[in-house]
Structure formats: C-alpha cells, structure tokens
Design a protein around this nucleic acid. Sequence first.
DNA 1: ATGAAATGAATGACAGTCAGTCACCTGAGA
DNA 2: TCTCAGGTGACTGACTGTCATTCATTTCAT
Lengths: 193, 193
Amino acid sequence: MNKKEKIVQSAIQVFTEKGVEKTTVSHIVKAAGIAQGTFYLYFPSKLSLMPAIAEVMVQLTLKTVIEAVEESASFDEQLKQFVDAIFAVNEEHHEIQAMIYSGLASTEHLKEWENVYAPMYQWVSTIVAKGQEQGAIRGDSHPDQLAKLIIGLTESAAEQIYLYDEEVDQGIRASEQKKETLLFLTYALGYSN
Amino acid sequence: MNKKEKIVQSAIQVFTEKGVEKTTVSHIVKAAGIAQGTFYLYFPSKLSLMPAIAEVMVQLTLKTVIEAVEESASFDEQLKQFVDAIFAVNEEHHEIQAMIYSGLASTEHLKEWENVYAPMYQWVSTIVAKGQEQGAIRGDSHPDQLAKLIIGLTESAAEQIYLYDEEVDQGIRASEQKKETLLFLTYALGYSN
DNA sequence: ATGAAATGAATGACAGTCAGTCACCTGAGA
DNA sequence: TCTCAGGTGACTGACTGTCATTCATTTCAT
C-alpha cells in the first residue's frame, strides 16, 4: 500500500474510532506511521481527505450491491436485493456515512459527490433499462432519472434508520422500513410481473 | 431579539457568507455584538449551533410548504404544490442546507435531526391520511411511513439539483427533476383520481 | 550528484476557560 | 414608601493549550 492509500485507510480507522472532530492530523499520521509533514504532501488539508474516503465507501457500496443483485433474478427480486444491500451497507458503516456527509458538506468538495456517485447511478440505470425492456416496469421515464430517484429514496430511507434514529428497536424498524421502501418502489416503478 | 437568537441569526449570516469551515467563533460574536465568552453560555461549541440553525430552516420549510399546499385542492394538485415548495426552499437556501448537513453530520448532533424534522413528518402524514380516507391513494401503508419516504425522496431529489450538481442548466434540470419526482410519487402512492 | 520524498520542530490561529465586572433584583430597616 | 446592603447571574475579554499547517533540513533512490 502506498503512502496515500495508507493515509486514507488510517484516517477511516481513526475517524471511525474517535469521530471526525476529535481526530487530529497527528492521530492520523501516527496511525499511518508517517511524519506530520508527509500528510501535506498528499492532501492539502484534513477535510480534503473526505472525497477520497467517500470514493472508497461508494466503491464498497457498489461492490456490495453488485454482489447482492442476481443477474438472473426477476425484477422485483432484484429490487428487494438492492434495497437489502443498501440497508446492509448503511447498517455496517453508519459512522463512515455520517463522516462523509460532514466532510463533503462542510467544504467546497460538495460538488464532487455527483462524480463519486456516478458509477452507482450508471449501474442502477442499466438494471432499470433492462426492466423496462422486459416490460416489468413502466417505460415513461428515462432510466437515468429513475436511477437517481431510486438511489436517493433508498439511501434516505436507510439513513433515517441507521444515521438519524435512536438505536432502540432498530432491528424491528429497519425491517419495517425496508418493507415499506420496497413497496413504495414497486408502486413507483409501475411494476407488473 | 435575545442573545441566543441573535447568535443563531448572526451565525447563519456569517456561515452563509464565509462558509462553515472558515468561520470562527470570534467572527460570529463580532457579528452578534457580544463577547467571546457569552457565546459559550448558550452553545458549548461552534458546531452545536447546527441543530438550532436546522430548526430555523425546517420551520421555514414547513411554513413554505403549508402556505403552498391548498387545503381545498385535489390530492395530486397538493402533491405538485408540495414538490414545488420543497424545490423552491432548496433553491433559495442551498448554502444553508449544505451547512446543516455538515454541522449535524460531523458531530453527536445527528440524532437530533429526527426531532427537528418531526413537525414536518407529522404535517405530511396528516395530508397523506386525508388522501387515504378519500380513497385518492393506496391505503396499504401507514401514513407516517409514507410521509417519511415522500419527504426523503423529494428532498433528496431537490438536493441532487441544488446542492450536488453544477449550476449549468440548473433551471432546465430542475423542472425535469420536479416532473419526474412528481410522476414517481404519483405512482408510488397508487394515486387514482 | 541531483532531485524527489520525507521529516518533525516551529509557528500562528483558534477554541474554549475563567476570574472578574456590572446591572439588576430582593427584602430588611428606617 | 424610600433606601441601600447583599445577592445573583448574565456578561466580558484577556489568557492558555491545542492543533492545523509550514518549511528548513535530512534521507533516499537513481
């Protein structure tokens, strides 16, 4: 692993343990086993780490989703697999998700979010297009548009549970929310088997 | 205006002008016309301002939405009015929206988001319940659940345009996105006139 | 030998503290 | 009713320790 990757990995680890605010650059460099100054050869500031971290997370999410959604499954099964996968990633990595929002939102890096998310949009868009071709879902919207709305809806539903909510009954509310999200999506896409 | 409100108002102003990162507490207190120490009587840190700012914003959003949605209108008209209102608030206050995310997400204040949003959820929920009673939309989901998904979807759709995207052709893409969101919602709620 | 990479001590800026001030209230005595 | 001593707590701003960032120097690879 080169120094830049090492910094990103260490930063994710330390941020997750201590929280973004309480993490100092010297914590990160200590964890990475490099000198203070070296950090600034690779990143101009602490927060400029965030797009790099966000990229790692989106790649992980996309990987999880691609693995979860079976090529051969029916569209409604794929939809369920997709929702389950998004919820699973959000459950496992909610601290990092929160961190990314904070980091991206608090800087001029907000605009990079769309670029980072682009592969995700693209992948969902192709799945949607296939569904439309098979006549499984309505064809009166462009796949790219539907992809953005599907991802936005599902992530926001997952965040409502894992980021913003208290943790009591999280399991129960998560499965409820998943069920509702799936139903909502099924209607929204005009699904007919 | 009491000191606490004065701090919140000044903070919104300075944050919007300089960005959250580049704003210091001494900038805020200077704008508010109070001493450094006074700030800490009301807020334990710079970022703990965020829930208070978020509350102001959500109140503003709810006020805008309530004014925009006509009691007497049909459900699909109400839905359109709702989506338009959310988009309008996001367009007008995108810097502040970004700021709130950053502030809430970067701290232990994330959990307060749900509380801050509660009045909004509640209001939408009652509108949805009325729609269900009239048989305008499907009744196989709880209004509270639908409210969360509707708000999450609409806000995320608006953010995709006004927060994350570049500003080229924003007007065109905004109206496209509004149209698609409305269509998506209409299907999702199983609307039938 | 040369330049690129890495270092870590030094610097300046900032968040947060705290000892002290002051405006105002309360109630006891005249 | 007036007055003033004692009490309260909101407010102040100079001060301190911490931290992000810089940069003169060293190390390393070619």
